[in-house]
Structures are given as structure tokens and as C-alpha cells.
Design a protein around this nucleic acid. Sequence first.
DNA 1: CATGATGCCTGACTTTAGTCAGGTATGTGT
DNA 2: ACACATACCTGACTAAAGTCAGGCATCATG
Lengths: 290, 290
Amino acid sequence: MLDPVARVRRFNRAVTSAVGALDTSFLGRGRPLGAARVLNAIGHGRSDVAEIRDYLGLDSGLTSRLLRSLEDEGLVETTVHENDARRRVVRLTRAGRREFAAYEALSNTQADGFLDRHAQREALLAAMDLVASALTLDRIALNEMDPRSDEARYCLGEYYAELGRRFKQGFDVSLSRDPDAKDMRRPRGTFVVAISDTLPIGCVGLKGTDHGYAEIKRLWVAPAARGLRLGRRLMDAAENAARELGIALLRLDTNSALAEAGQLYRRSGWSEIPRFNDDPYPDLFFEKRL
Amino acid sequence: MLDPVARVRRFNRAVTSAVGALDTSFLGRGRPLGAARVLNAIGHGRSDVAEIRDYLGLDSGLTSRLLRSLEDEGLVETTVHENDARRRVVRLTRAGRREFAAYEALSNTQADGFLDRHAQREALLAAMDLVASALTLDRIALNEMDPRSDEARYCLGEYYAELGRRFKQGFDVSLSRDPDAKDMRRPRGTFVVAISDTLPIGCVGLKGTDHGYAEIKRLWVAPAARGLRLGRRLMDAAENAARELGIALLRLDTNSALAEAGQLYRRSGWSEIPRFNDDPYPDLFFEKRL
DNA sequence: CATGATGCCTGACTTTAGTCAGGTATGTGT
DNA sequence: ACACATACCTGACTAAAGTCAGGCATCATG
């Protein structure tokens, strides 16, 4: 009766009919869907015509016409690109910003109303996060970012909080060997953040040392994105960066309380080695030759 | 950074762009979406023209034209309704059933492929179930059904399994006072199943007795549908049925391990009373005067 | 059995989305 | 300077979806 395929299909149907309703946020302001989508793409920071086209998957001619109709409404204005006069840059006018804000308000009200109708918001949100991550799996971007960026700091904060919950003795960053940000920037190392549609959902650090190896640090995947093999992808990204930087040997430390991490390392070519530092938290040590 | 509204909107975006891809099952057979939707509505058992129209939200003229095009393809045939010659009844021809089966196969393959791309299928499916239930909340049907029906038995099976997990001593139906099916059928009582798009996601029994009261039994809500206030709706349905049957007093027993159930009863006008039976499992007893 | 309501149909029309073939201006490499 | 590529645009077209006003047969009701 509860065939997995039936469950997926039920989800599809539920979502298809709900999306019709959710998408009324793009209607209801007397403008066809296409034009509204373009306006919103611009509002969300897409400025080059080609960028808008790619994002929305539109034909060049159609994009052009939709831009013209927004121009006629006085919502956008087009200028030539400063370095390349073939390209055009589109910006919202004051009226355009107002109209975009109205769409945003509609969307927010709608999302808010949806949340209000349900108890146990957090459980529902977590489920939505997981599904959204799964659906956009092949569009999750792994970006090298500064370890001091907002996105990186958010991930690290979640990572520390999780260690605090999972270690019997809790976790205090200041007792651990907190790597210097500059060790996790090129050319000494790097820091990779997984971003799914603007939300950071995972990270990993590659920390350069002066001992002939680099270390993998702070591998974290948001609970709502687990089971999507993102940990593996982050590790691959870190290893590739290490190869580019000419690093031949990687080490890492972890704790046996983080069983899924240990499994991941063993399965992807790491071998256990004796303790190589005096950090109080780890009790498992690995190394991998590239 | 992780505003709930932003998370809902991310979900909406993920789903809007994925649904196009997920639902390509309705394309790819050389037939416009509208006609494919009508064919599938008929395949799923909708036979009256008005029913099809309402289900798909189509204009009368458009529906008619789409039906005509399916007829021209030889996929459906139309007859007059036996009790009302103004109405038409649409049926799939042999070719229509073949074509419908092809759509079904496509959908199934697609859903299957989606599942294959992900580890931790069960977690993902559970999340999809929860979201689907939340989205279709106002379309969850509470149907009075025979307690021996497939749907009821599925719910009861899940209910017993859950008791087994949650009671320290486990749960064995045969030790409990398993109500006779006929006590949970009108006119002595009833059995209500919550159905969301064909999937049973909750149930409750109203069991008639000869002692001047009726009992509420087997209140269960699928884990993937909790937090949607479905328990409350099921209880309301059972109480309404009791009123219709002229029952003035309700009783129920439960176990303190089921904390959320106890809460629900207290919040909806039930008061605790002394033990009124010798069932070994319950340790909490309630009653409510209608 | 006349009257009005109901259920479905057809024809005539509009809007939206999308495709395709050029066209013009600008940039790049030799 | 030249050929060729690139970026965007316009015009001409099509397909699909949807709207609206009647039309016809049938049903319910006094």
C-alpha cells in the first residue's frame, strides 16, 4: 500500500497543485507570468540580459520582448555594458523596485501564511529543507570562500553547535586547535562552502601547515542535506584543491562519536594512523596520499 | 540567515523548477499537456465530464474540445449517463488504456529514478510525505470506512507497530481488548480513516458498547502527518458521528507513554476518570460528555 | 405541457509562450 | 584592416490555453 514510488508520485501531485496556488504570487498583479518572472530575476540581482535568459531558460527573442514590455511599463531601464558595448545591463527603476517589493511582500505573506497554518513548524521546515536540497542536488554549488565570510561563519557555528550536542563532554572551540583563517585561504589552503539556492548547507576546510602535509578540517553537512552524498562531494573538492596546490599528503582528525564521518573517510581511501596532534577532542586520526 | 520564510521560499523555488522536470511524464508522448491531463484524469477513474472539469479546473468549452481531440485519437469514448441524458460519461477505449498505462509507466520510472539518485531513501520519503500532507492539508478526506477495509487494516497495523515500539513491554494485540469490527460500524459505532490523495494517513474508531457509553479506540496519525492537527480533526469526526448516533457519553483509555495523545484529550474537553476496564496496557482513562 | 434550469457542445476570439530566421552593432584574432 | 564571432534585437510565425456567447437537447416543476 505504501509503495515508495506511490509516495513520490503523491508528493509530485501535491506539489504540482500547490505550485499553481503558490505561483499566484507571480500573477495577481496584472502582468503575465513571463514578465513577472523577468522582473523578479532582475530584482534578485541578475542584471545581464544573458544571465536573465539562462536563469529563466528563455529564448533570446522572447527575453528581449519581455524586457521591452517591462520597459514600456517604466519598470526597468537598459544601459550598455561598460566593458562590452554589445551587451546590455538591465536595472530596476524606482517604480520597478516598488513593484518588485510588492511581489516580494506577496511571496513572504504567502510563505508566512503557509507556516501559520501548521503546528510543528520546525519539523515541517526541516522536511522542506531536505526535499529542496534533494531536488536541487545537481545545482548545489561548491564555492571556495573566505573562512571569515558570513556563509562560512554560519556553517562553522552550526558545526560547533552540533559537536557540542554530540560529544559527551560538550565542545568548546577555544580548547580545540582553531585554525587560523589564513591557513584556509589560497595559497596555503582553502575553504569550500556548499550553497543550495543561496542557503549554505555544508562546508569543509583545507588547512595548510608547515609540516609537509595539509589537514582537512570542519567537514560539516546540514542535517537537512544529509543522505545526498554531499560530504563526499565536499571531500572531493578539498582533495582537488589540495592537488592544485601541489599538496601530496593529507591528514585529519575526528572523533569516534561522529560515526558517519569515520565511515566516509574509510570508504574514500583514507587510512587510520596514530595520533599526530594533542587536540583534546579527536580520538581517531587518518591520512591519505594524493 | 536562515529565516523560516526564506526556507519556505527556497522550497517553493526548488519545487517550481523541479516540477517541470518531475512532471515531464505528461509530455513526451506527442500530446499537449491539457489532453494528457484529461486522459490521466479519466484513467484515474474520473468518468463524468463535470468531474473531470472540476478536478482539472478547466472551462467547460475547453474540456469539451480536449475530450473531442482524445476521441479523434481513438483513446476515449463517450456515452450518455444512464439516469440523466444531458450528462456524458467518458471511458477509455482499449487504445486509451494502453496509452494511460504508458503514462503511468513513465511516471513510475521517473519517480523510481528520482529515488535511485538518493541515499537515505526512507528519510527523504518521510520528508516528502510530511510536506505532501502539509500541502494537501485542506484536501485530506475523513471517510467513514469499514474497519476491515485495506485502508483501515493498514492504519491499524501501523498503530500496533508503533505501540510495540513505544511501550517498554511491547504490545501484543491479542492481550488487548481488540474491539469487534461490528462494534465499529454503524449503527453501533464507526471507523474513520483520513485519506490524503489515496494514501491513508490516520484513523480513529468509535466503538459502541452496551454500558451506556461508546469508546474512542485506535486513534493514530502517520508520523509523516503529525503536527498538522489531524488528531484533533479525527477526534472531532468521531465525536460528531457519536452525536449523530445519539451517544451522550464517550470514554477512552490510553497510556502515559503516549504523551501527545494525553495532551490532545485534555485540551479538547476530556476529563480523567478512574480505570473502567481491565485491559493490561492503558494506565490513563478519560471521559467526555457530549 | 409550458417554462426555466442544467449539462454539454461549437464557433469565434484573445492572450501567452515560444520558435526561427535574419539584421545590426560591437568585439576578437590575425 | 579584415573576417568571423558574439550579443541583442525585430518581424513573422505557430501552438496551446483559455474565454465568451450562444445553441441544443434534456430534466424538474408547477
